[in-house]
């Protein structure tokens, strides 16, 4: 019983300590705002920016062509090897 009570007290202490720590963190870490000038400049840049989406080049067709070329070369080589007397 005594051990359980001690454990419960310890848990309560830990929770209280954590809550205390959390409230201190909340008090210290105040929200930071950007300057009004920066906000306006960025808004203007976004409005005047040309709409462009940068996409990665899709290499799949090139790779398929390459694989097809290798397969054809291999098949031709094997065929010629068989036909050779």
């Amino acid at each position: 019983m005594l051990v359980e009570k001690k454990r419960a007290n310890k848990r309560e202490d830990e929770m209280g300590e954590e809550e205390n720590f959390e409230s201190k963190m909340t008090t210290v870490l105040k929200p930071v705002k950007p300057s009004a000038g920066y906000v306006d400049r960025l808004k203007h840049s976004l409005k005047t920016a040309p709409y462009a989406v940068i996409e990665r080049e899709d290499n799949t067709p090139s790779l398929l062509m390459l694989l097809l070329g290798i397969a054809t070369a291999l098949a031709t080589f094997l065929l010629l090897r068989r036909l050779r007397p």
Partner: peptide, 10 residues
């Protein structure tokens, strides 16, 4: 943009 710029900057 206006709704989110402050929080993203922060």
């Amino acid at each position: 943009y206006e709704q989110n710029v402050n929080r993203i900057y922060n």
